[in-house]
Each structure stands twice: as C-alpha cells, then as structure tokens.
C-alpha cells in the first residue's frame, strides 16, 4: 500500500510543481493546493500505514497507528487553508489593482 500512496504523492507533487511553474495566478494557487495534499499524503505514508488501530487509547488495542504524523498533518491542513485564502485574496486584489494575472507582467523588480 505504501508504494501506491508513494506514487500518488509523487504524482501530486509533480502536477503541483507543473502548475506552480505556469504563468497564471489561479493555476499557481491550485498548484499550492495540490502540493499541500501531496505533502499530507507523503507525511502519512512515511509514518507507516495501517499498523494498528485508531490512536484513541480507550480502544485498548495492542498497537496503534503513529499519532505524530496525524498531529502534524492536522496543523498543516489548517495552515494550508489559511495560506490558500490569503493567496486567493492576494491574487484577486492584485488583479483588480494591476489588471493582469500574468506572472511575467507582475514582475517585482526595479532593475529594468
């Protein structure tokens, strides 16, 4: 199973990178969304899958799955939500002010 999820995570990373390298703002934001999904899957996979029951101690099971990646992912999910919202508003505001969503025209550098 780990191999399957590894490949899925790899594909998520790949598509995310491809989208982030493109020139349209919305594509970049969608790319970051995919990237965070990929990262979550990666962390979960690295911690090992299905090696016990749910990490709730009142289950009284012999073994539990690793709770640490879950805690990490939980934080990451919420953070990536905040970041996505921020990106979206940033994108729409800059489009509103500057009239373009082409990254080549949104170049932030004074040196001509």
């Amino acid at each position: 199973m780990e191999i399957v999820t590894s490949i899925v995570a790899g594909i998520l990373f790949m598509t995310a990178t491809y989208l982030m390298l493109s020139k349209s703002l919305l594509r970049i934001i969608i790319g970051t969304g995919l990237l965070s999904h990929g990262a979550h899957l990666l962390i979960l996979t690295m911690g090992g899958l299905k090696r016990g029951t749910v990490p709730l101690l009142d289950e009284h099971a012999a073994s539990y799955v690793d709770p640490l990646p879950q805690a990490l992912i939980l934080t990451a999910i919420v953070i990536s939500f905040g970041v996505t919202a921020f990106f979206l508003v940033l994108a729409y505001r800059s489009y509103q002010e500057l009239g373009t969503d082409d990254m080549d025209q949104l170049r932030g550098n004074d040196q001509k």
Partner: peptide, 30 residues
C-alpha cells in the same frame, strides 16, 4: 522545462516516500 522539473520533483518525492516507509531504524517517538 516545466515538465522536466516537475517530473524530477515527483520522482524524488516518490523515492523518498518509498525509502522512508520501507526502512525503519529504531523506535519512533510515537
């Protein structure tokens, strides 16, 4: 260029995930 870079990222992540989950050394902090 975009495809090559993204394929590289995807490949390296897959490799990392597989290696990490197939080789475990020592106890985890879990």
């Amino acid at each position: 260029v975009n495809f090559i870079i993204s394929a590289g990222v995807g490949g390296i992540v897959t490799l990392l995930a597989i290696s990490a989950s197939s080789e475990r050394t020592g106890k985890t902090i879990a």
